[in-house]
Nucleic acid binder design. Structure first.
Length: 973
RNA sequence: GCCGACGUAGCCCAAUUGGCAGAGGCACAUGGUUUAGGUCCAUGCAAGUGAGGGUUCGAGUCCCUCCGUCGGCACCA
């Protein structure tokens, strides 16, 4: 390839040297090399086999490296300069890894299903696919202009039929398997059926009516039992139903006021039949395997909190009037003697059974909700609770509400009858949906007991310090406690004829009472999780259709794998059905595609009529496995060839998780995406489809680019680019003072800066370098357009060290490199390797700048080739276009992307002499110049020989001398 | 309320992981180049590390308390 044509210098700016590294020149260089990389497939990563395997034999001595970015949603507004920060960092690292002997896989995709495209379609009538494809094209253009070293053969979008075919296939894997608790992993559903038929096992509790045997069931009933075991199953679940939008919303689409983010319509809780994925079965493994991962601790902590494992006991409370036993979950079984009432969630299945016919004698008025009988009170309360969203409940969490059922339960440790309430501070989805209330030792129970005048019994005695903090004298009576005591103390008043906890500390009391409950058959140790099953249905158009049809018995059937994908049908109207009837069920847009919904299929027992499932999958589905498809994107037979998966993601050794070598993205996906993807991956692992236990071995959270925004005196945002800073530190817009705030970059804040503006003004290499330079990769930093010029100047100076600005001639010499420069170079190589390896790219830029400044000041005419070529290689991962151009002009005929990264010569890193400080009592009092390896004895002698130090030490006793070779000497006097 | 991260020149950030607080950039100042301008060149300028206490010969770094900024969770029994 020849050097590119130089830009014309016949402009009015005739005095600017024709070959200066300007935005125009940068743009021409960048276009040239982007074309070169694309034409040559420079960043194609060879697979060990299959369609993308050409060139793999040359990778024999290389280690695989899989770098992954959290792929973007292709939004209509395009990118601002904050978006690519992570992509640039990953690219820099990937390029560095390629230059250090790795076979690097790095590509990009688009998470392209989702609500915005659908909403836009509703507003404009344009098909979501049209807008999505246009948005992807625009975003691809913006990203390509950055010079990211992606393997373009692997680029995909979740909306590609060739992709969502496999998303549907994975759903069917979930549908066709169950979690075998005995072995702790998923197995094919056929195994379960065989075991049930053979009588080798019983159906799981809750999947079959108590007292009914498998062998008693007919075929349809058996199918229902089987279906209840599947990892993908249908369940009646309360959802955020938004009548105004005609759809169910995800929690994050509901604002704090319980209204929809889009449209501001009211949202209410409503039970709906929904597809669920049994992620809760994996709670323990999702928790335990975090230990295998190289992830930031805060992210692991957030996942642990989200999974929310807690240990405690299930305790059985019998009724005093014949209602079925109710089980409660508690983490404090040690306080059982202090349980003075029981609360069921309003949705608890036993509420009706526990609701008495009439109020018992002496029921306080405030327990009845003003109703004449318990059934009326309970019904009214349940209706009220059902309408309240979770957010409503939380917002009023300090005011406890509830009603008495009219029934009493028997406390199993002391036989006391305790009143049974329903209250929405008890949640149906956690534990057993029922609690024993110990107001003395639980804040929520305390508040409820105070509101309803219930008994409060002290069973853990607080330490004196607690009483002091409450402003009470030691041992004050419980009636005067301002709140519950939830800390560690000694059990009191906790004995019956059989067992006594009195005098035991909390942990011992827990184990003692739990053991006793087990012996008595009224309780057992239990582990519960906050994690809920994953609600997987959306009443939307722009998502993956479920590969499921329903038969006349209302049983779901999978579409055979060879008939996938189930394509989205064309519909005329994406508008949700808005119903006046508050109890109307939602109608998904797909339900209106009548021809599509009603099909005749042969699923193995001859052609039959079926109805298609009309919900679609949530946006999370496509991002649960895209890293796997990158590996083998063209495979039509399997979602990823096992050998290819093992090559790129397989564990590196025993006890290793395997998975992506570096996954870069924002903390906002700390929980949901990362948890869902881990779950899918583990299912695929259990079923033998992948060799890695975890999808993402190393996770790195890049910081955000933030920006200042300014508001005028009316509170309106003004364009940030036109705000002027005044000498006194205040800011003005059109001469009027404005207020500065700091936060995200975005259109509505009028502080967006686009990559396109930066390409225009400086070029892509400058933008890349600036984003990498402004701070450590994992730290957020403000955008300051004003500062960009600094790194642009750096590139200009580097350019000028190789190229004559006026003639364009290469000016390097073949002279030997002087010793000082050589040492500086090798120190820079060490620093660059270290900075790249640790993802502290800002320090690499600083050290390259330092070295280049040295070259500028140390050399008058022509810099030795051997001083400049290694620096071009150091720069290459950060600013690849200018580096390639300089590399070529320096006489190399192939891309430096595959060159070896420079290695420092150790012998040049050791200085002949160093200057170290001499301290007296920790204060620097002088300096001595010594050889780096001078031993402590010689160091002390040299220090004492220093005139200033000697003067300070004269006549005083030195108590101690600390001499650290290569560091410092300290005299303690 | 609970959990977590972060506070170093006017601004963005370094600091061999407990060893001389300053590498790099912006801004600023002076000079040069230029008819002029600055996306040009050169030289120069700056804080004692949010506050207080502790450990240590020695603390930006480790520990405690407080303050501030940002993020996550929030009736999970």
């Amino acid at each position: 390839m020849k050097p590119m044509a130089e830009p014309s210098s016949e402009t009015t700016e005739s005095d600017i040297p024709a070959h200066r590294y300007s935005a125009a020149l940068a743009g021409a260089i960048e276009a040239k090399w982007q074309r070169h990389w694309a034409d040559k497939g420079t960043f194609d990563a060879p697979n060990p086999k299959g369609a993308l395997s050409q060139g793999f034999d040359r990778m024999a001595d290389r280690t695989r490296f899989f770098a992954l970015d959290m792929f973007p949603y292709p939004s209509g507004s395009g990118l601002h300069v904050g978006h690519p920060l992570g992509y640039i960092g990953t690219d820099v690292y990937a390029r560095f890894m390629r230059m250090t002997g790795h076979n690097v896989l790095h590509t990009m995709g688009y998470d392209a299903f989702g609500l915005p495209a659908e909403q836009y379609a509703i507003e404009t009538g344009r098909h979501p696919r049209a807008t999505t494809d246009a948005n992807i094209a625009n975003m691809a253009r913006q990203l390509e202009r950055l010079g990211l070293g992606h393997d373009r053969r692997r680029v995909l979008a979740t909306t590609d039929t060739g992709y969502y075919r496999w998303t549907q296939w994975i759903f069917l894997q979930l549908f066709d398997s169950y979690f075998d608790a005995a072995v702790g992993r998923a197995r094919p559903i056929d195994v379960l059926i065989a075991e049930l038929d053979n009588g080798d096992r019983e159906p799981d509790a809750g999947t079959i009516e108590p007292g009914i045997a498998w062998s008693d069931l007919d075929a349809v009933a058996r199918r229902r039992v089987i279906d209840a075991h599947r990892l993908a199953f249908v369940s009646e679940a309360p959802v955020n139903w938004c009548a105004g939008l005609g759809t169910v919303l995800a929690n994050e689409e509901v604002n704090a006021e319980g209204r929809s983010e889009r449209g501001n319509f009211p949202v209410e809780r409503r039970p709906l039949r929904q597809w669920m994925l049994r992620i809760t079965a994996y709670a323990e493994r999702l928790l335990a395997d975090l230990d295998l991962l190289d992830w930031p601790e805060p992210i692991k902590l957030m996942q642990r909190n989200w999974i929310g494992r807690s240990t405690g006991a299930t305790v059985t409370f019998a009724s005093d009037s014949g209602a079925p036993d109710v089980e409660v979950f508690t983490t404090r079984p040690d306080t059982l003697f202090g349980a003075t009432y029981v609360v069921l969630a309003p949705e608890h299945e036993l509420v009706d059974a526990w609701t008495a016919d009439a109020w018992p004698e002496g029921t306080p008025d405030e327990w009845t909700g003003g109703a004449s009988d318990p059934a009326t009170a309970v019904d009214a309360y349940r209706t009220l609770a059902a309408r309240r969203s979770d957010r409503d409940r939380q917002a009023e969490s300090d005011t406890k509400t509830g009603v008495f059922t009219g029934s009493f339960a028997i406390n199993p440790v002391n036989g006391d009858p305790v009143p049974v309430f329903i209250a929405d501070y008890v949640l149906t989805g956690y534990g057993t949906g029922a609690i024993m209330a110990v107001p003395a030792h639980d804040d929520r129970d305390f508040a409820f007991a105070k509101a309803f005048g219930l008994g409060i019994t002290e069973v853990v005695h607080p330490p004196a310090s607690w009483f002091a903090e409450q402003g009470l004298e030691d041992g004050a009576a419980i009636q005067r406690w301002p709140g519950a005591f939830t800390g560690d103390g000694v059990a009191v008043a906790s004995a019956n004829d059989d067992i006594s906890l009195d005098g035991l500390a909390v942990p011992e009391a827990k184990t003692t009472i739990t053991a006793w409950l087990g012996v008595e058959g009224v309780g057992r140790a239990t582990v519960t999780y906050k994690l809920r099953d994953w609600l997987f249905s959306r009443q939307r158009y722009w998502g993956e259709p479920f590969p499921i049809v329903w038969d006349d018995d209302d049983l779901p059937h999978p579409i055979p794998a060879d008939q996938l994908p189930v394509l989205l049908p064309e519909v005329d109207d994406f508008t949700p059905r808005v119903s006046e009837d508050p109890d109307a069920l939602p109608e998904p847009p797909l339900a209106r595609a009548e021809d599509w919904v009603h099909v005749t299929l042969d699923l193995g027992d001859g052609p039959r009529a079926y109805r298609r499932e009309t919900n679609t999958m949530p946006q999370w589905a496509g991002s649960c496995w895209y890293e796997l498809r990158y590996l083998d994107p063209t495979n039509e037979t399997v979602f990823v060839d096992p050998e290819i998966e093992a090559y790129w993601m397989g564990p590196s050794g025993p006890g290793e998780s395997g998975g992506v070598d570096l996954y870069v993205g924002g903390v906002e996906h700390a929980v949901l995406h990362l948890l869902y993807a881990r779950f899918w991956h583990k299912v695929l692992f259990d079923l033998g489809h992948v060799s890695s236990v975890e999808p993402f071995h190393r996770l790195f959270n890049q910081g955000y680019v933030q920006a200042y925004a300014y508001t005028d005196d009316r509170g309106f945002y003004v364009p940030a680019s036109d705000v002027v800073e005044q000498p006194d530190g205040t800011y003005t817009f059109n001469g009027e003072p404005v207020k500065r705030e700091y936060g995200k970059m975005g259109k509505s804040l009028k502080n967006s800066v686009t990559p396109d503006e930066m390409y225009e003004a400086y070029g892509a290499d400058t933008l890349r370098l600036y984003e990498m330079f402004t701070g450590p990769f994992d730290q957020s930093r403000p955008w300051n357009t004003r500062d960009v010029i600094g790194v642009h100047r750096l590139l200009q100076r580097i350019w000028r060290n190789v190229i004559d600005e006026s003639t364009g001639a290469v000016t390097v010499t073949d002279d030997a490199v002087d010793d000082e420069t050589l040492r500086a170079l090798h120190r820079t190589i060490v620093a660059a390797r270290d900075g790249f390896t640790s993802l502290r790219f800002n320090t690499v830029v600083a050290r390259i700048t330092e070295y280049n400044n040295h070259l500028v000041s140390a050399v008058d005419a022509g810099i030795p080739r051997d001083a400049i070529e290694p620096m071009v290689l150091l720069l290459a991962p950060l600013a690849p276009h200018i580096a390639e151009e300089l590399w070529e002009r320096l006489g190399h005929d192939s891309s430096l992307a595959w060159e070896d990264f420079p290695v420092a010569d150790e012998s040049l890193l050791v200085a002949e002499t160093i200057e170290i400080p001499v301290q007296v009592n920790g204060k620097v009092r002088g300096h001595i110049t010594v050889a780096p390896d001078t031993d402590p004895v010689a160091l002390e002698a040299a220090a004492r020989a220093d005139a200033k130090v000697a003067a300070l030490l004269d006549g005083v006793e030195t108590k101690r001398v600390i001499a650290v070779p290569g560091r410092m000497v300290n005299f303690v006097v």
